[in-house]
Amino acid sequence: MGTILVIAETFGGKLRKSTLNAITFARTLAGKTGGDFAIGIIGSGIAAVGGELAGYGAKGVYVIDNPGFANYLAAPFAKAIVALADQVGATSVAATSSTFTRDLLPRVAARLGAGMVSEVVAVIGDGAGVKFTRPMWAGNVMATVEVKSAKAVFGVRGTEFEAAAPSGGASPVQTVAIAPDAGANQRYVKFEPVVSSRPDLGEASVVVAGGRGLKDKAGFAILDPLADLLKAAIGGTRAVVDAGIAPNDLQIGQTGKVIAPNLYIGVALSGAIQHLAGMKASKTIVAINKDPEAPIFSVADYGLVADAFKAVPELVEEIRKIKGV
């Protein structure tokens, strides 16, 4: 199948761990089709990231480091990635799904003349007959698809491919001179980060999520002591994000973040189809809701029918007791 070009993601000059999930996808696909993979990194002041990715078995790590790529814009980034793909002879491009890659990869696909498969969860078969599984209808349907075009682009669902472990060896790290070509019809203005001392929602091993039943910001704040105690990330349903109770970055679900932590605790949320799509791959699911008929109980390993405002402080107390803190 040729070479798969994995696009690494960085944030603030640092590698995002989610990149490692796409490396596992690339290893899997290369293994099944007799190809190899390379890694591409694009940004400004990111040269050190290249070395970090040298131990994963890529045939090469290619770094495009240019002040003109300090801030992401889809069109110039897509141009640069396609230029890199051509240079390394890549027949496909892959990256772990995020708002960055969801924005970027389709543009890369159009420019490459490639078909794109979004949110790949599995690779089926091998050789020329290789196929891909992806969720549709909020994960209520799994579709098996095949790419008919000579080139392909893959958005990889990170929760379904483990983070790659280093495989030893040292891939050659090479700086590639590709200049940005943003043109005059788009410009970056600013970025307002959500500042939080909690773990990243997509990477946390424990997630505490709140729903509409918590009513307002003060109600949502009852999750803080629980999250502190469990070193958990906090997430929310669409309802609490729409209501301005939690920032957009914390929305879990079909059109927000897809997570699969070791422990998920859903508090005062009903479990709409759209929310379940984003968390039902979690290892252990706990639901606390005062409505015994709430759909969240149908996927929960442990359900507690209770008023969250009473149960959550109690839960904090009980966990403190067993942890002796």
């Binding site: 498969v117 579709a143 109980f297």
Partner: peptide, 29 residues
């Protein structure tokens, strides 16, 4: 460029149990 070959239902997650108290929940966890 991309053709869908087939559709299937995803594996269903089995619902678990209901616990009666917060204490029981913590013990189970």
């Amino acid at each position: 460029k991309v053709a869908t070959v087939s559709y299937e239902a995803p594996p269903q997650r089995k619902g678990g149990i209901k616990v009666k108290t917060v204490q029981e929940l913590v013990e189970k966890l």
